[in-house]
Design a protein around this nucleic acid. Structure first.
Lengths: 222, 222
DNA sequence: AAAGAAATTTAGACAAGACTAAAATAATTT
DNA sequence: AAATTATTTTAGTCTTGTCTAAATTTCTTT
């Protein structure tokens, strides 16, 4: 049924999906940056993925997933997020480490094992960072939310999702008890691009503007 | 500390270790057979492994692991067997399927996760097929035992270990309740290379001579 | 609109690891 | 012992995925 895809191809499709979710265009340089390979390497892989009809490509204009490519990307992301949650729940791996382990495991997970893990976890909907887990059929429920950096002061918010790419940030956030589903108040935004001050469990903590771009929240119903 | 080794190199070292355990000489053709690659491919990889001092090689005379090579082989085998047991215990994967899953997982298991799995399982000594799990320090306890095919009739034996390479055999053995630690009686050996008849849980079952080579037993204390 | 800067693609090279065909060596048979 | 057969190695090719350097195209600035 499924063709055998190299790990490299899987990594590219996932990266393209992720860039598509946040940027208008998926540029060669964005992929080069994200995957840690040279722009020339991206171009040559892009050519191959186009030939296989997994993406479309107009020269000098960026890249787009086809439905087939998107399906595969979402399968990989499903593997990744299921594994992240599994490692945390079943083996107690701290949330700042699950990402790098999952980067390797996502490529070796059989469908059978995917199902067993899914069942073990009770068919979960989000991973440890609050990111939605794609369904087997290639659909994914996306929650409506704002970046913390864009929230006005004096607002009560609920954390929805935290980017999993910076372990250091995750350790800091974990240390202050800031996880998905946590409610907190945005107290103030310090001037001159200073930090955002949030209050949770009665204490105030600073969060850098840059970090606050990667924390997604929604207005809490109060 | 540990150098990054390719999956291919890990597979070769493991294969060499396994051939060393059962054959006198580790020949190019044996490795070619075991790994499913051409003899020429084996020769070229052998050259590389020699250069890295992981094996020694005399032209036309076969190959031998160095202590460094053996240590790595045992680490991979440790990963493999821990994963096999983990998949069975934690996720209920049937024992005839754990091997092929572990073939992939063994290469992506971090030391941290290895330790977590080891701890979860209570520091086990054998995998689901009865094979000993190498220790972290690269040592392994080998039990003294005989192949079922060599046992005289009318002997009470205890199953020690069953080869994990043939899922079909494992399903058959599982179906009749023949697992490691099971006690059974060798009833008779049918003539003309016929099957061996064993009795367990009050019933008699035939086991082909060839299969019986891959079932290791020890005399039970009765 | 032209010039300079930035991004992208092309061209060509390289490493890993596989292959086939042919040559060299070892083992077996007569 | 010579001849045949089997095994191993060598030589050379291919594919995948990477790289650098150079050429092309697009974007930005003046």
């Amino acid at each position: 049924m499924e063709k055998m895809l190299s790990q490299s191809i899987e990594d590219y499709l996932k990266a393209i999906y992720e860039v598509e979710s946040s940027e208008e265009k998926v540029s060669t340089s964005a992929l080069s940056e994200k995957l840690g390979v040279s722009p020339a390497s991206v171009t040559s892989m892009v050519k191959k993925l186009s030939e296989r009809k997994l993406i479309t490509h107009k020269r000098y204009q960026g890249v787009k997933l086809t439905p087939a490519g998107r399906k595969i990307a979402l399968e990989i992301i499903r593997h990744h997020r299921l594994v992240e949650l599994y490692l945390k729940e079943a083996l107690g791996v701290p949330w700042d480490q699950v990402h790098q382990e999952a980067e390797k495991w996502e490529h070796v997970l059989s469908e059978d094992l995917e199902d067993r893990i899914d069942k073990f976890l009770g068919y979960p909907v989000t991973d440890p960072h609050g990111s939605p887990i794609p369904r087997r059929d290639g659909t994914m429920i996306v929650r409506q939310c704002d970046a913390l950096v864009d929230v006005e002061p004096d607002t009560l918010v609920k954390v929805v999702e935290v980017s999993d790419h910076d372990p250091e940030l995750l350790r800091y956030l974990g240390g202050i008890g800031l996880y998905p589903e946590t409610e907190m108040t945005v107290v103030s935004k310090q001037p001159f691009k200073g930090p955002i001050i949030v209050e949770l469990t009665g204490k105030e903590y600073p969060i850098g503007r840059n970090a606050a771009k990667y924390i997604l929240v929604e207005k809490a119903n109060n």
